[in-house]
Design a protein around this nucleic acid. Structure first.
Ligand SMILES: [Zn+2]
Ligand SMILES: [Zn+2]
Ligand SMILES: [Zn+2]
Ligand SMILES: [Zn+2]
Lengths: 153, 153
DNA sequence: TTTTAAGTGATACTAACTATCAGTAATACG
DNA sequence: CGTATTACTGATAGTTAGTATCACTTAAAA
């Protein structure tokens, strides 16, 4: 995601392109790995924490930034490459791959219809040990990986 | 989930059924709505916060308790009714319905095979407005429901 | 140019934990 | 049975990822 893309998405949408916001956009533009809000904060000294969080939230709401949840529950931000998608996240190094599965989307969309109500959203994260990390650990996932109920394989 | 079920799952597994643990188990046994760790803490005065969290974590790891993530990212605990499953969570009242979709599980399990690595787990939450809340809001979901990228409908 | 609305940053606060650690309780061993 | 070992506990402090408040500043609109 380039700085221009980000700027364009903010401008002319009723949002103001202020100096602090621009600092945040410049900090994150072009990042190709996931990052935390704290990392952004550290990278824009002088810009308030609240503004960093507000800006990230704005981008997530506008669909310009993804917020995903790692296996241990901690959040990470990354730029989307495609439209509606979900993430394969490496539990070891945090590397992200996007995936799109229209069949899954189909199946999910049918779930709520009868009994459960009206679907307003969903969250899917798939946790993996990426090829790089598999090599690093001699072809095995680390044995102590916590796989708990509801987040099971 | 009855107290006996919980006690049985702790006993004889190398874990000790201590008085503080029993207090926690008694507090949560029989609950039929989701709850927070703080609610449990408040219900077992004298038992340390750490012990409450440790006990909940133990139960989650042992598969006796589900930990799900609400639409806003906050965690809730609830008892599982079935085996491997996921949740339909009402964004308005928090009511939970479980679902099992072997087709989705199938599709997910095939995702990692080629490029992404080895799947070690997944997380799926579906956010709904439940029938009760739909009635309460005159047949509409509240318009201000936040539906963000990656958690989209 | 006022007026209004949006945005800012400092500060404080919250939720949901985790780490540390001295002390206690349960179990195992001889 | 006593002692050793290990599990567990609660107090305290610290962490992460934020949100709430609010006086102040900017930017846009009238
Ligand atoms: Zn990796
Ligand atoms: Zn989807
Ligand atoms: Zn509801
Ligand atoms: Zn599943």
């Amino acid at each position: 995601m380039t700085n221009n893309d980000l700027v364009a998405a903010i401008e002319g949408q009723g949002y103001r392109l202020t100096a602090p916001r621009l600092r945040v956009l410049e900090s994150i533009a072009g990042r190709d790995t996931n990052f935390t809000a704290e990392e952004v904060c550290a990278d824009v000294p002088g810009v308030g924490r609240a503004t960093v969080f507000r800006t990230l939230k704005l981008l997530v709401e506008r669909g310009l930034l993804c917020k995903m949840i790692l296996h241990d529950g901690s959040p990470r931000y990354s730029f989307p490459l495609t439209g509606h998608h979900h993430h394969l996240v490496c539990v070891s190094c945090g590397a992200i791959t996007e995936f799109q599965e229209s069949e899954i989307e189909q199946l999910l969309s049918q779930l709520g219809v009868s009994k459960a109500g009206t679907i307003v959203g969903h969250r899917i994260e798939v946790y993996v040990v990426c090829p790089t990390c598999q090599v690093r650990y001699g072809g095995h996932a680390k044995p102590e990986l916590p796989i708990s109920a509801g987040v099971s394989s």
